[in-house]
Design a protein around this nucleic acid. Sequence first.
DNA 1: GAAGGCATGTAATGAGTTACATGATTAT
DNA 2: ATAATCATGTAACTCATTACATGCCTTC
Lengths: 207, 207
Amino acid sequence: MYRRADHPREVTSLPSEPAAPEPARAPVRARKLNATSYVVLGMLCHGPATSYDLKQRIAYTIGNFWAFAHSQIYDEPARLVADGLVSETVEQGGRRKRTYSITADGRAALRAWLATPTPEQTEVRDLGLLKLFFAAFGERADLLQLARDRYESHRSTAEGYAELHERIADVADAWQVKTLELGMRYERTVEQFWADFIAELESEKTE
Amino acid sequence: MYRRADHPREVTSLPSEPAAPEPARAPVRARKLNATSYVVLGMLCHGPATSYDLKQRIAYTIGNFWAFAHSQIYDEPARLVADGLVSETVEQGGRRKRTYSITADGRAALRAWLATPTPEQTEVRDLGLLKLFFAAFGERADLLQLARDRYESHRSTAEGYAELHERIADVADAWQVKTLELGMRYERTVEQFWADFIAELESEKTE
DNA sequence: GAAGGCATGTAATGAGTTACATGATTAT
DNA sequence: ATAATCATGTAACTCATTACATGCCTTC
């Protein structure tokens, strides 16, 4: 259950009025969906899922470059249910596990989003880059260490992507494969950057 | 003033005790700093600044790839003051504008962070990539539009970076220039990806 | 049948976003 | 002297992160 569902949001009718004859449709004013919402909607397009299933689907794919905490994946479907974009069935007995499915409205919302322009700038949240930016205030040795760590990290991610690509290129959705291909190019670029940088640092030292 | 400074955090002494003779040092248990904190600390290393100054410094530089809302830049320094890592002076009269300076503890905290390993994965928050990933659930025409938009956006960012690089390469901090160079490589890579993708989409259409 | 990890969830806290508000300065 | 924009800040709300809690399943 969405634990903030009863927060004061917008008064749509006076509390003392008797129930109006309206058929209790979708919320009058829709919440503005965010990236998390669309990720959940998109993943549910592949079929009903529990939060844990979603967590898995995301971890293999989008989670590689855009992390979502597992509690987000437990909260967001509940919000989408409140929005009428997702429906939920609760297992009888046991842990009363919830399974979510996307509704027709949910599919429509996803399609509408896909049809919408995308003017937002990409954000690259890279602590390594931040550290490089402020390196003047630290030690030279730390910078070299940073470069080596970041190089290794991106090299290994790139390698992982390449393997994944081999395994799924023939079977997966073509656009998902494309996404992965951008991931590969990105990782290789950054890997190369740090490699070049290490080389520079080391050549300066010996001069 | 940090408007949540008086939230219940951790009781360090019973309220009824008379003031102990301790010299009221830094907070017993330090808040865990985050990226925003270090960005502010780093920017303050270049000299005292108001929040607006910080906003500017960030907008020209780090803000290009990692966005911070201006209210964050107003909140975070206040927290750092509470942490003892930043000091503040309040203008007398007028708007009682606050100017922040980094303290010795603040510099130490920044240096410590720079000396720390960086195992976190880079996050790339790109709505275009998300849309590509879920493109199977949308229209072909929307995908082509997406590709064109994203191509143009990255092309223009790359160009902007190149100009900036020309202007500052000789005068700015060497590591900051390096950061920019990674930005350029990144933008060029992504630009090229979308260009290739557009070409593919268009060649399929004519077959 | 106990240990350890997998699956499922909630609570508390802290951070980020959006919208609002308004004083100062500059340009017309 | 009015408008426009820059500079400065707060409030309300939403979202994300961290830590906790615990049932369920496998394996030894």
